[in-house]
């Protein structure tokens, strides 16, 4: 009896295995194998060419003493934390606005979503011109000293320039996700709260936000991950400068790993970066799923 059931099952199973196999082979070939080779090279002094030796944990020890690596982590985290907060606050406010009773609703949504479809590199070039020429010229004309120099040339403020561009682009996607979240909240929930005499702020705090929480956690995880991996904007805005003050982890790995003869060392950096991203994502998942359970 059981054999009879099993036979057609196994035929179906064979087809299913055949269906998943092409994707699985590609994934192993271009994700798992490079991941393992990268991890292997992190224990070597490979320069990207020629011969190499195993150096054990040397690269990892050096990594924690390397000031350039340290400052790239500092920049990347400063950028990702400020960026994630700004993006989520702005896009939540925008989503609330774009989801209420307004005129030109779909046109406005269309415009606010526009930055998301544009190439990050080209957006960076456009803003680079804005920061380097237009804003200083406007600053000089208005007599504002603070604005009369390009912020991209300032060692202490260039990261804000990169942040503005990053936020400008990321807000679009998160806004759409928040809007689709707001639309899952049934209208009668709001009616109940207005009957109970809740003011708009109470409604938002006690009703909208908790019901939106799954989308908040999606957005937080998405934007943190994307912001930690920042690359395109750096490439077009600052190339890591001035004085390496805006060098992100991805950019440093690219710069020194590909051309700087630090293949082994930057592989170690990449391994640490990978662990950092996984840790941050897991912590975020844990925290938000706990919050969701409490409700």
């Amino acid at each position: 009896m059981s054999a009879q059931i099993r036979k057609p099952m196994s035929k179906r199973m064979k087809t299913h295995i055949g269906m998943v196999l092409p994707a699985l082979i590609l994934f192993i070939a271009f994700n798992t194998i490079p991941l393992i080779t990268g991890a292997f090279y992190s224990f070597t002094n490979y320069r990207g060419y020629g011969s190499y030796d195993m150096v054990g944990l040397r690269n990892f020890i050096d990594l924690f003493q390397d000031s350039r690596v340290g400052s790239s982590y500092l920049f990347t985290f400063k950028y990702a934390i400020c960026g994630t907060i700004l993006v989520n606050v702005i896009s939540l406010v925008l989503a609330l606005g774009l989801n209420s009773r307004i005129r030109f609703k779909s046109a406005l949504r269309g415009i606010y979503f526009l930055p998301n479809i544009l190439s990050g590199l080209i957006v960076g070039y456009i803003f680079s011109f804005l920061f380097t020429y237009i804003i200083p010229a406007a600053g000089t004309a208005l007599g504002w000293k603070a604005l009369s120099n390009s912020i991209l040339a300032s060692e202490s403020w260039a990261w804000v320039g990169v942040l503005i561009v990053g936020v400008w682009q990321s807000v679009a996607m998160n806004t759409i996700i928040y809007i689709s979240g707001l639309q899952t909240i049934p209208a009668d929930v709001y009616e109940a709260s207005s009957i109970d005499g809740a003011n708009p702020w109470q409604t938002f705090q006690k009703l909208t936000l908790p019901l939106l929480l799954p989308f908040v956690s999606t957005n937080l995880i998405l934007s943190t991950k994307n912001m930690l991996m920042v690359f395109d904007q750096i490439m077009s805005l600052t190339k890591g400068g001035p004085a390496q003050s805006t060098e992100s982890i991805s950019y440093l790995i690219y710069r020194n790993g590909m051309d700087g003869g630090q293949f082994g060392f930057q592989s170690a950096n990449a391994v640490v970066f990978f662990v950092v991203i996984v840790t941050v994502s897991v912590i975020q998942l844990r925290l938000t799923s706990k919050k969701e359970e409490q409700l």
């Binding site: 194998i33 490079p34 990207g48 930690l228 592989s267 990978f274």
Partner: peptide
């Protein structure tokens, strides 16, 4: 695989 940054795959790839 969503959490694997391109940076770690880049050089081996």
């Amino acid at each position: 695989g969503m959490f694997v940054p391109f940076a770690i795959l880049m050089m081996p790839l």
